[in-house]
Simulated assay, not measured.
Amino acid sequence: MSAGSVSARLAELGIELPGVAAPVAAYLPAIRTGSHVYTAGQLPFVEGALPATGKVGGEVGPDEAKQYARTATLNALAAVHDLVGIDSVARVVKVTGFVASAEGFNAQPAVLNGASELLGEVFGDAGVHARSAVGVAELPLGAPVEVELIVEVAS
């Protein structure tokens, strides 16, 4: 995408990036090394609070969790924007998503589509990425999902 076009696309989609979520431990929300930005795992905070807690396939439904993956991705994009500016993103390289999964729940990839679909809407072809969708027993603060990104930035 050309300079300024990511911001324009967000506006076109009616998406406003949230403020950067405060870290819940000793780490930075995002760090740049060379031409890449790595985000810390981002939870689906909305105005500083988790909208739900629990395991997907148990207390949290898969469709609801998909929306939380989208929210966590917006939080990751906010961390990128705060560090380097969203318009400097040349492409999304990798998404890693963690899903707190109830016993027997194995639709983690469908949950993480909430992240992947958002990135495609925002970045177009530059949003197509490699991805891991991992089921875990627990996530910080009882969150149902956590998302981290690796993006390439323009020099």
Score class of each variant (00 low, 15 high):
Pro18Asn: 14
Gln42Met: 14
Asp63Lys: 15
Ala65Met: 07
Leu17Asp: 01
Ala110Gln: 10
Glu121Gly: 02
Ser5Lys: 12
Val99Ile: 13
Ala25Ile: 02
Val60Thr: 06
Glu64Met: 08
His36Leu: 13
Asp87Tyr: 09
Glu152His: 09
Leu17Ala: 06
Asn113Phe: 08
Ala3Phe: 14
Ala130Trp: 15
Val56Ser: 06
Ser116Met: 08
Ala21His: 00
Gly4Lys: 11
Asp125Lys: 05
Arg9Pro: 07
Phe98Arg: 12
Tyr68Glu: 01
Ala110Val: 08
Ser7Ile: 06
Gly48Ile: 04
Glu146Cys: 14
Glu152Arg: 15
Tyr38Thr: 03
Ala100Asp: 09
Gly135Phe: 09
His81Ile: 00
Leu28Glu: 15
Ala79Ser: 11
Leu17Gly: 01
Phe98Glu: 05
Ala76Asn: 02
Thr71Gly: 00
Leu139Met: 10
Thr73Arg: 02
Pro29Met: 13
Ser35His: 14
Gly135Met: 10
Val111Cys: 02
Asn106Ala: 15
Leu112Ile: 05
Val20Pro: 02
Val6Tyr: 10
Leu118Asp: 00
Thr33Ala: 13
Gly4Thr: 08
Leu17Val: 02
His81Gly: 03
Val89Phe: 03
Ala69Tyr: 04
Gly4Met: 12
Ala21Glu: 00
Ala49Ile: 07
Arg70Tyr: 12
Ala133Thr: 03
Glu103Leu: 11
Ala22Tyr: 03
Leu141Val: 13
Val145Leu: 09
Leu83Trp: 07
Leu10Ser: 07
Pro18Ser: 15
Arg70Leu: 01
Ala133Ser: 15
Val92Cys: 01
Glu138Trp: 05
Ala126Tyr: 14
Gly124Met: 12
Asn106Met: 09
Ser132Asp: 15
Ser35Asp: 12
His81Asn: 15
Leu112Met: 15
Pro18His: 15
Ile86Leu: 08
Leu10Glu: 13
Val92Glu: 05
Ala133Asp: 15
Pro62Ile: 09
Glu152Asp: 06
Thr33Gly: 13
Val147Pro: 03
Pro44Trp: 00
Thr33Glu: 14
Thr39Lys: 00
Lys55Thr: 10
Gly97Cys: 01
Val24His: 11
Ala65Cys: 04
Glu64Arg: 10
Pro18Arg: 14
Ala52Tyr: 06
Leu28Trp: 03
Thr96Pro: 02
Gly135Ile: 05
Lys94Ser: 10
Ala107Gly: 07
Leu17Tyr: 03
Gly34Asp: 05
Glu146Pro: 01
Val92Ile: 09
Lys66Pro: 00
Pro144Cys: 03
Phe105Leu: 07
Lys66Thr: 02
Ile15Gly: 04
Gly127Asn: 11
Ile15Thr: 10
Ala3Met: 12
Ala78His: 09
Leu43Gln: 05
Val153Asp: 05
Ser88Ile: 01
Leu17Lys: 07
Val122Phe: 13
Gly4Leu: 12
Leu141Gln: 13
Gly57Met: 04
Ser88Tyr: 06
Leu77His: 06
Leu112Ala: 01
Leu118Met: 06
Ser5Met: 14
Val122Pro: 06
Thr71Val: 05
Val134Pro: 04
Arg91Gly: 03
Gly85Asp: 08
Glu117Phe: 04
Thr73Leu: 02
Asp125Val: 10
